[in-house]
């Protein structure tokens, strides 16, 4: 590739074809999803590792540190988070993903205008908000049932069991994802209402890529719910 092999290619201007840009963005989204998959894998690994190791039998029962000396060293409490509630949250997330997925597909097939997509995106965003609220309730339920008082009399000092800790990690990560989904949903809604998501050219592709991510979050939520409800005690 010496200098004379660089040939001038007249047809190639500074502006790239939409499909080229779209392909690049699609790969970008997929790579971010890969990063996120590894993140979730590390959370699930943590959950299963702590369950498997069960150091000092402390996965769910807290052995030490009850302020009542008579209970010292006795299993104090056992508590599994409600699997039903867990699956409810997951169902809401899956529903939001379904709205985005089928809504987008349907509209694209019909080549309809941007107005109706605005509604779809807003509904999906709203479902993400609902799921976030439910996740906060779930996190608070860990807070109410999981902590055990430490040796000190200070009621502010508590520690979660390994199970409670792993649940906090998984639910916390899920909450962050849902906030991102809500941001994306409402962003698409606003953009669609301004005519920035339409069937022509590139403008539609953002909606499609958001859809990939949305479906991945729903899938991750199903995996998490399955692992935590099948393997806990």
């Amino acid at each position: 590739m010496s200098s004379d092999t660089i040939e001038h290619e007249a047809s190639h201007g500074h502006h790239e074809a939409p499909e080229v840009v779209e392909g690049r963005q699609r790969l970008g989204i997929w790579l971010f999803i890969v990063g996120d998959v590894i993140m979730l894998a590390s959370f699930i690994f943590t959950y299963l590792y702590l369950r498997g190791t069960n150091t000092g039998n402390g996965w769910m029962t807290y052995l030490q540190g009850d302020t009542n000396a008579a209970n010292y060293g006795q299993p104090v409490h056992e508590k599994v988070l409600s699997a039903g509630f867990n699956w409810t949250i997951t169902a809401v997330i899956v529903a939001s993903a379904a709205v985005v997925w089928f809504g987008e597909k349907h509209l694209r097939a019909q080549q309809k205008g941007a107005g109706s997509f605005s509604l779809i995106a807003a509904v999906a965003g709203l479902l993400a908000i609902v799921a976030s609220a439910l996740t906060v309730i779930q996190l608070r339920s860990i807070d109410e049932h999981m902590p055990y008082h430490l040796l000190s009399q200070n009621v502010h000092e508590f520690t979660y069991t390994a199970y409670g800790s792993a649940e906090i990690l998984l639910n916390g990560s899920s909450l962050l994802h849902l906030i991102v989904l809500a941001f994306l949903g409402f962003g698409l809604a606003i953009r669609a209402s301004k005519g920035l998501v339409s069937s022509e050219g590139l403008k539609w592709s953002q909606a499609r890529f958001v859809r990939f991510f949305w479906v991945w979050v729903a899938l991750g939520s199903v995996i998490t719910a399955a692992v935590t409800s099948l393997i806990n005690k």
Partner: peptide
């Protein structure tokens, strides 16, 4: 207050 690494409560 989590115990991922604390052996006292399962970490």
């Amino acid at each position: 207050g989590t115990s991922f690494f604390s052996a006292d409560s399962g970490g």
